[in-house]
Amino acid sequence: MIQKKICILGASGVGKTSLIKQYVEGIFSEKYLTSIGVKIDKKIVDLSSEKVQLMIWDIEGIDRYCGFQAKYLRGASAFIIVTDRTRSQSLIEGNEIFNMAKEVADIPGILALNKKDLPTTWHWSDSELADIKHPFAKSFDTSAKSGEGVEEMFSYIAKILTE
């Protein structure tokens, strides 16, 4: 079975760990608990043609307390930039992280616009959002709480990585 390393990146508090917990264990907790360092989870995706084991690297939120660490992307096949629809700053930072990641790894980047269950409070116009989404391989509206878009996003990644 092929294995693929996926890195989950983003500013702190956007719901990276919650997204993975929802995907791997089907669990969601409202309480925000900050992640420290890295945690790796595995999940097998059964595509019609073959099975892929995703090794999902949940990486501590990138902010003033924890910088971007290029070494975590070593050997990765794709990365997901998670942003929080209720905080436009997280999208600006996500965009910066995307640029830094692309400088060290020529792999697909996927954008997760997370917290879809909450009312969107950012103020991007459609064309601005389209500009931001443009360099990403694909973007998904996700909710770690309801699970919306989560399975779909990881399946998409598994699919493009086996094609």
Binding site: L33, T34, D63
Partner: peptide, 15 residues
């Protein structure tokens, strides 16, 4: 870091 990040998020939101 939990306190610091909660502050950061609240501050971000208010700003």
């Amino acid at each position: 870091l939990q306190i610091a990040r909660e502050l950061l998020l609240s501050n971000d939101k208010i700003t």
